[in-house]
Design a protein around this nucleic acid. Structure first.
Lengths: 334, 334
DNA sequence: CTGAAAGCGCTTACAG
DNA sequence: CTGAAAGCGCTTACAG
């Protein structure tokens, strides 16, 4: 039995040129932006159709030295934050006629290094990346010769364009809201090894101070199960009246802890935190959260990248976007 | 002020060859798999290090006619189903030394067509794709000359390798479970325009018949808000004792409907459906669902693709994976 | 095992 | 506006 698919006839620009009765260069011009008469262009396009020609992007890239490709490196594509950003980046890229190579680092610095190497071999037009803390620090000494925009973490000061949530402002906003609801004993739960956690803790502390309250910030090691961490706090003698969880894992842990402790929200304890994930609306009562503008973060990253490509020498920019406070039942006045 | 980054020195294989005192071909062999003495290889590697050389993948691809690239086309990367599959595909690709180009079709046939064209111009090694129904039908006449594996939808019979959940079996399993809990009046909610919905409806109907029960299957148009659709059913005179929702949107709608109707789950109504999304565990009571093996779907798709590349003439395969039933409070016996 | 030469499929100065 | 020629940076027969 013969193979159905022949071993690829491989139609090239020369075949099209022959079919159209023109030079290969003319075909290239008809397909691209080169100067060409309308008559010849139509003639060429017809030949393209007749031959079923498809440009070979590898050849085009090698010759033109432009890849039209964006690298997108995230820590975990299954995380809704990165998924949302990735979606926006992909869409912006499509509209700009660019391809995106997806790199999921899995929060593994070795994978990040490997992918960084790949991005350079790909000669990507630009890179949008959410580095781990480890890689972010290494970035300074890496001599990355790819225009890069960092998301979620700014990296070494002054070296990379970046876009991130205004974490301090967002945490402060949550404090303001809790205080407005009559709370004074507020405990904040923050990721210990997270830059983002630090930034949120600072906003938390300064807002508490502004209200003349004592900030009770707890830094939770990544190794401690969030539910246990929250439970420990709730069982202290001077248990808080409100809990602010600095990321969705901690918020989920806090919620589970309230259930295990038999506390009613918001009656016994107010609860709020970060990231407007679907489940935060569906639990009863719904949880008050700060929503990150995922779409806008992705689009802004692309915008910064394009600006950088246009003018490589412009000053480095750090774009801070405001979160949106979504108030739900978990912080209702008692 | 001068630019910090010089206009790219562009170190090529010839520069490395000169530094190592060998021919360019030798450098190529040292970097690749060509036969070479250990001494020369070491010599070359040292020169590579010294010069900071990075291979140009566009050139390598053009010459070798191998791109080492996988196209991944999903309907919506923000959908947890596709996110999970994408993650698995990305990881499998990384391990195999392949890159993945992410294509989010946004369920838009025009975008799909555009991306399909791109994949061919990229000369991707293979394509893994979740087509819309429209594109799935067109696929037969498209003369796609890229090895392709379909996910989530099998497409034209016998044309493409595919991997999907055994939807009929999964729906039947849910029916069996409900019946075991004592239910007889079971209504199924299915997406009207969805192939997946059809397959689940068939499993639903045959399982009901097997139990000697009358199947009450409702096909909900995509234009009808899920909550309203479910509410309408719950307000009928002969309201069901159990609801089976064939996708997570319908399940969410059903949940909201029970709340709006003031029904208690599972006391007044049992509820179950598809996709083990985080919120299904967090609502009270937790919802009984069928979990799709996302990781395995992605890995299996890659496996089918590799097999196809190895042997292009082997028969087309349709791989059906079993879902996992996650039983929670929403279907507890009353 | 090693080198010199050809060529992958395009685009782009260079002439006309 | 059009064509002939060169060359992007590699890999791979082809000799030796």
């Amino acid at each position: 039995m013969k193979s159905i698919a022949p071993p690829a006839p491989a139609i090239g620009i020369k075949d099209v040129a022959r079919a159209a009765g023109v030079a290969p260069a003319t075909v290239s011009r008809a397909l691209g932006k080169g100067p060409i008469s309308e008559a010849l262009r139509a003639q060429v396009m017809e030949a393209v159709r007749a031959t079923g020609y498809r440009p070979n992007l590898a050849a085009r890239r090698l010759r033109s030295q432009e890849t039209g490709t964006i690298g997108l490196m995230v820590a975990d594509i299954a995380n809704p934050f990165f998924t949302g950003v990735a979606r926006a980046v992909e869409h912006a890229a499509f509209e700009a006629g660019l391809r995106v190579i997806l790199c999921d680092s899995d929060r593994d610095p070795a994978r990040e290094a490997s992918y960084l190497q790949l991005m350079q071999e790909e000669r990507v037009t630009g890179l949008i990346m959410a580095p781990t803390r480890v890689t972010a620090q290494r970035l300074a000494g890496l001599a990355l010769d790819v225009p890069t925009v960092l998301i979620d973490r700014a990296g070494p000061p002054g070296l990379f364009d970046s876009v991130l949530l205004d974490n301090g402002e967002a945490a402060a906003g949550l404090v303001d809201h809790l205080v407005a609801q009559g709370h004074t004993r507020i405990t904040g739960l923050f990721g210990e090894t997270s830059d983002t956690g630090r930034a949120r803790a600072e906003g938390f502390a300064s807002a508490m101070a502004r209200h003349g309250l004592a900030p009770d910030a707890r830094f939770i090691p990544a190794t401690t199960p969030p539910t246990e961490a929250a439970l420990a706090v709730l069982r202290e003698d001077a248990a808080p009246g409100a809990l602010l969880a600095a990321n969705s894992l901690l918020l989920l842990g806090a919620l589970r802890a309230t259930r295990q402790a038999g506390l009613r929200v918001p009656r016994d304890l107010a609860l709020c935190g970060f990231d407007n994930e679907p489940w935060t609306e569906l639990v009863e009562p719904g949880l008050t959260v700060v929503e990150q503008p995922l779409e806008e973060i992705g689009r802004a990253a692309m915008r910064l990248l394009f600006d950088r490509l246009r003018d490589p020498d412009q000053p480095v920019r750090k774009l801070m976007l405001s979160g949106r406070q979504v108030v739900r039942g978990s912080t209702a006045a008692r």
